[in-house]
């Protein structure tokens, strides 16, 4: 555990010390705020719960971007600069490397998610917000962030180029998002599988409206674990090359 936290802390301080990390967060926050302003805070009358659902809808998309953008370089940069040697020759396991890197990037994603809190606060000031709705929506964002960061960590372990890592991670998350569309064009049992895999329609949408299901925790937990396991397998395989 000490090694995991050590790696995470180093990476997190690298994000806090780099302009790029702040730039990514700033751009995503501005974009979320603008869309939120346009859809939920305009002149038309909206119930607070509807405005909150809009916020979580946009928040979901930008949390996906934050997760991928902030994790796409975690291994790719180390592979390109050859600093990965310090991890491979240290008395730590591949799991510790993966979890440390994932946790470091996820820590910065949490900063982004935390900074979005002013938007539900504005709704609360101007209307009535149910605590359970906020909690459920934020759980959705937290789990989405964890999954996207894990997918970005996995795709980053595949390549020396962080941009390639970002594209691969983005495509993987994109496939999960559009699997509802595939589900509508296939027959059972395939359609059932694609429906279950659908990231937004099956899992996040309800959470953004204040409803929690056990299956959502299982879904996010298992996919996050699978992505991290993939990164661990890739790193292990690099020792055998």
């Amino acid at each position: 555990m000490k090694a995991i936290l050590l790696i995470a802390k180093r990476d997190l301080s690298e994000y806090f010390g780099s302009l790029l990390g702040y730039a990514i967060i700033a751009v995503l926050l501005v974009a979320t705020g603008m869309l939120f302003q346009y859809a939920a805070m305009g002149d038309r009358a909206l119930k607070s719960s509807q405005a909150l659902s809009y916020f979580f809808y946009f928040g979901f998309g930008f949390t996906c971007f934050a997760g991928i953008l902030l994790s796409m370089g975690v291994f790719a940069r180390e592979l390109r600069e050859d600093t990965i040697v310090t991890l491979y020759t240290a008395p730590i396991s591949e799991w510790q490397m993966v979890l440390g890197k994932w946790l470091g990037a996820y820590g910065f994603v949490l900063v982004f998610i935390g900074l979005t809190a002013y938007m539900p606060l504005m709704i609360a000031v101007n209307g009535q917000v149910h605590g359970g709705h906020v909690l459920s929506g934020y759980l959705g964002l937290l789990m989405t962030g964890a999954l996207c960061t894990a997918v970005g960590t996995f795709s980053s372990s595949l390549t020396h180029h962080q941009l390639v890592g970002g594209i691969v991670g983005g495509v993987l998350i994109g496939l999960l998002v559009v699997s509802w569309w595939v589900a509508g064009r296939t027959e059972p049992p395939l359609s059932d599988i694609f429906t279950y895999l659908s990231l937004y329609q099956t899992h996040v949408e309800d959470m953004g409206k204040g409803t929690l299901h056990t299956r959502d925790f299982v879904y996010f937990g298992s996919l996050t674990f699978l992505a991290l396991l993939g990164a661990r397998v890739v790193l292990g395989a690099r020792r055998w090359r």
Partner: peptide
Amino acid sequence: PLYDEMTVDGYLKYLGKL
């Protein structure tokens, strides 16, 4: 294998702990 953004002291302490 150096992290350019770290100080020499910080880097040695980090790897020592690792």
